[in-house]
Design a protein around this nucleic acid. Structure first.
Lengths: 247, 247
DNA sequence: GAGTGGTCTAGACCACGAG
DNA sequence: TCGTGGTCTAGACCACTCA
């Protein structure tokens, strides 16, 4: 059977998980060294390390080379609200995010050109937004806007995620459509290091394309959230006079 | 630097990945045995196995105990369309899914009661839908409906996902709201075995709550898709009644 | 029983972080 | 320099599949 009995690795992971979840090991605390733990559980170092890898995969511990293994602080969950009305307005608790923005003038190519439905080499403005919640990185957004619609300047750092992105949103012509594709994938190496997550931890990736009434794409956004503490919520209101099918 | 050079494990994974992606190793084909590969790459068995674990994490190979390692057939992507109008209508290619449905009469409790906004022990009907695309499991849906709204009987097996779920949808009173929460998480042991994915591979989990015009919850659905080949798309149409269209 | 993958060991060596 | 985690080895033993 699958996982019917605990391997030693699972047993150790279970014990440590229990200690963390019950608070016996506190957030931020350093675990005993791997050789210590290995001898304590009477297993070899690779076995102990595979147990720690399980906990790392669950987001319970963080491994720091040369320093030790640490209990991760429980992270506030990010809730992304879809629908485009207020693109990145989070719950009040999330409003205190600190955001750094890097702006660049680029030209469309490849997938991006297709996504924005513009010819290759069309002028765009790229905003790379990295938001932090205190120490820990919380999300990464790459936002592309046709250059003629882009604001002349954007502050490089902001204490409010809402402020910045709402600012961008205001510049848009009235929106007609927002299409958001949500997928799960492994982070790129860059994303993993920027978001400080293991490269084995999946991210929640949202590709958002906003079009105006004329069908022109006014914004394409590639949003990446650490999968272990992010949700996306979409709410749809229906008219009561439904026809048979709607699509 | 982080990952600046390839470890032996990564190098092997890269080589095998290349062989798979270029078609030198074909879908369904069995890889040489682990001892064979280990000696071929001049590494030890654990090192080789960690390389295979990487590929397994990427969904490129499937390990079958006692038989060997096999190149996975590329799976058709699942596209879940949000908004609730036609809950599970996929692209035409996906319409050929085979679905097995298990129906049970249960009573609300805990999270489920809260989700459906009904008192504990309220009578519900549960539909557990497992859809297959050919051999491979494609998605798992647990759908809960107040028992007085549930159809008297549902076919236990269907060749069309659309037919079954549309059938359920038709029984609903006109919908007023659909709320869909998308998250990423590791599968439960049950989900991993049912969907035939590794327990380390994240799934795309969608919690969908549908309410009617009176605010009553007419359906709660817990949908689980293998994260490696599923997307969810949400499209929002906005009214343009604020200002005139301009470009 | 032969061959496969799954788990584990005991120890070597390397790379990183802090004093 | 020292202690930490990161990677790797060579081989043992077990569990599963199939003939």
């Amino acid at each position: 059977m699958i996982g019917s009995v605990s391997s030693r690795c699972d047993a150790i992971a279970g014990d440590l998980r229990n200690q963390i979840l019950t608070g016996r090991l506190k957030a931020g605390e350093r675990l005993r060294s791997e050789p210590d733990l290995a001898s304590h559980y009477a297993v070899s170092k690779p076995t102990l390390r595979s147990a720690l890898a399980v906990l790392q995969g669950e987001g319970l511990i963080e491994k720091i080379h040369g320093k030790g293994n640490f209990v991760r602080r429980p992270l506030r969950r990010i809730t992304y609200r879809g629908g485009g009305a207020m693109p990145d307005v989070h719950t009040p608790a999330d409003a205190a995010l600190r955001v750094t923005i890097r702006t660049a003038k680029i030209r469309a190519r490849g997938h991006l050109a297709a996504l924005m439905n513009v010819p290759a080499r069309s002028p765009l403005t790229e905003f790379v937004c990295l938001s932090h919640d205190g120490e820990s990185p919380h999300s990464l957004a790459r936002i592309y806007v046709p250059r003629d619609l882009a604001p002349a300047s954007v502050p490089e750092e902001s204490t409010s995620y809402v402020g910045v992105v709402a600012n961008l949103a205001e510049l848009h012509p009235p929106l007609a459509n927002v299409r958001e594709k949500v997928s799960v994938r492994l982070p790129t190496q860059e994303e993993a290091s920027v978001l400080r997550i293991g490269s084995a931890w999946a991210v929640l990736a949202i590709t958002r394309v906003m079009t105006d009434a004329a069908g022109r794409v006014v914004e394409a956004a590639l949003l990446v959230f650490p999968g272990d503490h992010a949700d996306a919520v979409f709410t749809t209101h229906h008219q009561i006079d439904r026809r048979g099918t709607e699509e």
